[in-house]
Nucleic acid binder design. Structure first.
Length: 423
DNA sequence: TCTGGGGTCCTAGGACCC
DNA sequence: TCTGGGGTCCTAGGACCC
């Protein structure tokens, strides 16, 4: 049986999430910013229409924002993460085979559906997600993931497609591929697009008939996979149970330049605490920790970045222990006199937490420490994030990233639920 | 003044081994 | 003239994704 994939892609996801709880934003230009209120990472159609570019730094487009009275929001990941869960749960009504590909996209396996029914299933799915969650989606259906991506891309652009494009046994497949610029093909980024265009390959259709040997040489096996997928040979199976994580990173830009060792230590403790929570949620322990610090990369004259690898004697998921080693790392990378703009922690060498071998000279009572961590996590889950936190992470935390226009945690915080008032 | 964060996979080259 | 050959493992860097 030939495989069939649907790609469900939430339209302008972060903006759409804001609109669900604030309908006044509908029909208006709206953008959501990256962390530290830095760059535009989600735009409503109205914002795109007035010329707000993806990735634009806020300070560079301030005039545009003022002129067109664009609504600006800080990102609210608690809200978007929760809305993502609702969308994915809704998709599981359509098919049990759901691969959550990113916060706003999922592949669905539709191999059991007859070709005649595919479009109708797509429409039903789209309407259900809209009705149950308030999020508008575009859906592309095809025999490979790469073609499904192409289809969803067309669905998003076309006002006639009604949000669903089915390319399975479609007489329009050729014409559709001819209209897709090569840089919009999944897996073709800036660099490959440049090299392809130098060779006169400018559309998905032209890429499809490119020479295998040349693509293998220029783009490696990944390029070859793209080629086959465009030709209808499925190389990328659906992965509905996600493989375990290989690393966990927590890093943030500071709200202002930070020069003091004490504040860097606080920030790194806060980040590694967060990383520890993620580690425990996935029942993993880290064997290696990396701490890194950097000054602004936009001031090349004084740019300085450093990192240090700390090997942990016993794989661990215990926050105070992680903080201790992270602080040890800070001692190696910190240099007085630099204006640091960013810090981060990576945990790698992740192993399942259960059968950890204790070190010969390990003096920590790990069972006890783990029970403490469970209690801390449970309190924070119930009473709100950061209700209990380590003193080392600081109380004031005035190095924290800016988020001046964050919407309330409508779905994740008891104190911030939406309230309705009579007219 | 102000410019995000978190991932994955692949490849080439060096070290090392027999 | 001709300096072995073939593995494995690790790492850094590049490319990509959202």
């Amino acid at each position: 049986m030939q495989s069939v994939f649907a790609l469900v892609d939430c339209n302008n996801f972060y903006v759409s999430c804001e609109r669900v709880f604030n309908p006044k934003l509908c029909g208006r230009p709206v953008v959501v910013l990256s962390s530290n209120d830095g760059c535009v990472i989600s735009r409503s159609e109205e914002a795109k229409a007035v010329g707000v570019k993806m990735g634009a730094p806020l300070f560079q487009i301030q005039k545009l924002i003022d002129t067109h009275r664009v609504e600006v929001y800080s990102s609210n990941y608690a809200l978007y993460g929760d809305m993502c869960t609702r969308v994915m749960d809704t998709l599981r009504e359509t098919s049990p085979e759901v691969e959550v590909y990113s916060i706003d996209e999922a592949f669905i396996g539709l191999s059991g559906v007859t070709t005649e029914q595919l479009y109708a299933v797509g429409r039903e799915t789209s309407e259900r997600v809209r009705k149950w969650t308030g999020i508008p989606v575009s859906i592309g259906i095809a025999t490979t993931k790469t073609l499904a991506k192409v289809a969803a891309h067309i669905a998003k652009k076309s006002s006639r497609a009604e949000g669903v494009v089915n390319l399975v046994e479609s007489p329009y497949l050729d014409a559709a591929l001819a209209r897709v610029p090569v840089e919009n093909v999944w897996g073709v980024g800036r660099n490959y697009a440049r090299r392809l265009k130098e060779r006169g390959i400018c559309t998905a259709r032209e890429l499809r008939s490119a020479h295998d040997g040349w693509v293998r040489k220029e783009m490696g096996v990944a390029g070859l996979r793209i080629l086959y997928e465009l030709r209808g040979t499925s190389c990328l199976p659906l992965e509905w149970c996600p493989p375990p994580k290989k690393g966990i990173t927590v890093s943030r830009s500071f709200g202002r330049p930070v020069e003091s060792l004490e504040e860097i230590r606080e920030a790194v403790a806060a980040y590694v605490s967060r990383a520890g929570e993620k580690l425990r949620r996935q029942q993993l322990a880290a064997t290696t920790l990396i701490v890194f610090l950097a000054t602004s990369r936009f001031i090349p004259e004084s740019h300085h970045a450093a990192s240090v690898v700390v090997n942990l004697p016993v794989p661990t998921d215990i926050t105070p222990e992680l903080i201790r080693y992270a602080h040890e790392g800070v001692g190696h990378v910190f240099r007085a006199g630099h204006k640091f703009k960013k810090a981060g922690v990576m945990l790698i060498g992740l192993v399942p937490v259960s059968p950890i071998q204790a070190g010969l000279f390990d003096e920590m009572n790990r069972a006890r420490a783990r029970r403490l961590m469970q209690t801390v996590d449970a309190v924070n889950a119930r009473m709100g994030h950061d209700t209990l936190r380590y003193a080392g992470a600081g109380l004031e935390q005035n190095w924290r990233a800016r988020a001046e226009r964050r919407s309330p945690g409508y779905t994740t915080c008891w104190n911030e639920l939406l309230t309705l008032s009579p007219l």
